[in-house]
Design a protein around this nucleic acid. Sequence first.
DNA 1: ATAGGGTTAG
Length: 605
Amino acid sequence: MPGTSVLQQTKFFSLPVDPPQSPELSLRLKEQECLSILKRCKNMEEFRQAHAQIVKWGFFWNSFCASNLLAACALSDGGSMDYACSIFQQIDEPGTFEFNTMIRAHVKDMTFEEALVFYYEMLEKGVEPDNFTYPALFKACAWLQAQEEGKQIHGHAFKLGLESDLYVQNSLINMYSKCGEIEHSCAIFEQMDEKSVASWSAIIAAHASFGKWDECLMMFGNMSSEGCWRPEESTLVTVLSACTYLGALDLGKCAHGSLLRNISELNVIVQTSLIDMYVKCGCLQKGLSLFRKMGKRNQMSYTVMISGLAMHGHGEEALRIYSEMLKDSLDPDDVVYVCVLSACSHAGLVDEGFRCFDRMKSEHGITPTVQHYGCMVELMGKAGMINEALEFVKSMPIKPNDVVWRSLLSACRVHCNLEIGEIAAKHLFQSRLQNAGDYVILSNMYARAQRWQEVAKIRVEMAREGLHQVPGFSLVEVGRRIHKFVSQDTSHPQCVSVYEMIHQMEWQLKFEGYSPDSSQVLLDVDEEEKRQRLKGHSQKLAIAFALIHTSQGSPIRLARNLRMCNDCHTYTKLISLIYEREITVRDRNRFHHFKDGTCSCRDYW
DNA sequence: ATAGGGTTAG
């Protein structure tokens, strides 16, 4: 058929042949035809042809067709923003729909400032925004973290009476949390009459991004009790990460069960967060078996497994997974290497550590960051290579940070190297990030060397700097609830029975030859007071609580914010023996599995 | 008539 366009030749783009009865109906049908043509456009070539066709039909100046051309081109993946802009320019009097389209398209393109420009242009031209306008704008403000602007636009939406719209509210929750104002998010959430899954997801994610893990799990519980129980993978991933941080294994298992019941095939992200949850809640084997069963793994899955094995002290196995990763032709990145190096340091694999460090640079072209150097210092320090570690720090091409100096200082404490310990401490004391723990370590080292004058000097200095030790806490899960105990706790509702239990435990411990080790209590108090302080360490309180409230023989799992003191370590070993319990403690650094009076770290941590 | 919200892992 010569003279007809490609479009007309294809059945795909043909117009209805039969003339309809009334002119109005005919117009409608043609408009519908335009719509369906636009819906099928996959790339710019097709959009151009469709555009030409619409013009040819004389429909371009019919605002419905032109607007839909604009929308389809601006919002579909095959379209182009520039082309959409040129269409927008050709529309005589753009109305709400056209402006909304431009705003949404810019948000989709992540050109958020542009989206806002269109909004202000809209206001200037006297075009009234509607409930479709604001969610896109709030998303733009969320990305830009434009708190003030977001608030102002929120004010406009409120004046127009659009604040009761569910979609507007959901996007507001997100915007305020991304701008750091979670209180506003909560206020909006609480005032909502109707809440959708998206509302719950938004508020749960908001709490997670602020590290409010308790609240995160509480909201999740409320979600189902308020009847909103359509499990979504993304929401459950957030919930799983809360479980991971809190060591809430039972709750994590519930989430796992709900995933298995409701989702036919778990995606990589969910599987990875499940592995991370199990491993960081102490169930290394469960994590490993899930990892083995995974169909497709990505870089993150490997990272989670390697870091988990490292935390549990299984260095060789971690290195095996690392070589599996290479065989899987995945390129390890800097984070993978942090995990690999820390696996080596936890397991005392010095040579392998150095080999990996070289390989990282030469084979994978990764420039070591301060974290990698920190791992190497930790590796050497743990192995007692204190002088080498110091030389290494001195030769670093970047400025060592406090973490690096702190690893060196801890190594000096373990290996009783006061001379280098003083060097490390000097750097730490000069750092802007002052830490009471560093003073404590140095002072303990002086105490061990019986240099009491220096001990006193450090104490005075510490007081002068106004430093306080970060309060230690331990988390323990009993009856699907997380109980938090802080050091010297008097606030937990069951404190009385816990302290009674502590008293009883000490009796039995004494029979096993336990004597308190108060060397790490840095307080200007007498020996008896020090012993009292030791008794109140959060780990002991949490263990006592778990002994009372769990059945005989069941394992006890704790997560804590700081590293363990020597006394708690010895104490817990004996408790595992006396009460015949397996006790797993997640430290700041790694796991300790106490069983039959011994610990998996073999007393070196 | 056309359109919209939230969201994951180290």
